[in-house]
């Protein structure tokens, strides 16, 4: 049961990764790609980490720290990239 939950979460994360990374190849705006990257890199990676947490509960403090820093840093990086790339476009 535990194995099943953990592998389901990890595969969900991998699907998110693939779906969110494919738009990088297209010709959309930076902001649009940022939306799909936040699906893949924040939510997908969080799903993978939770899957690992279910599978290997002994390493909980390391994985928990990874979860928190994923959520905070990736989100803030998305905001900073959006802010900076737009500032550049406005002047350029």
């Amino acid at each position: 049961m535990k194995e099943f939950i953990s592998y389901t979460l990890i595969s969900l994360g991998l699907v998110f990764w693939l779906w969110g990374t494919l738009p990088l190849l297209g010709k959309r705006s930076v902001l649009f790609k940022l939306h799909s990257l936040s699906v893949s890199d924040t939510l997908g990676s969080m799903a993978i980490t939770v899957g690992l947490l279910v599978h290997f509960p002994a390493d909980w403090s390391l994985l928990f720290l990874a979860l928190i820093s994923l959520a905070i840093w990736n989100t803030i990086l998305g905001y900073v990239l959006a802010f900076c790339s737009r500032g550049g476009q406005k002047d350029g």
Binding site: S36, S38, A71, T75, Y79, A82
Partner: peptide, 11 residues
């Protein structure tokens, strides 16, 4: 706001 994937704060 930025954490939910449909919305990103620009400024």
């Amino acid at each position: 706001i930025t954490f939910t994937p449909k919305t990103i704060v620009l400024n």
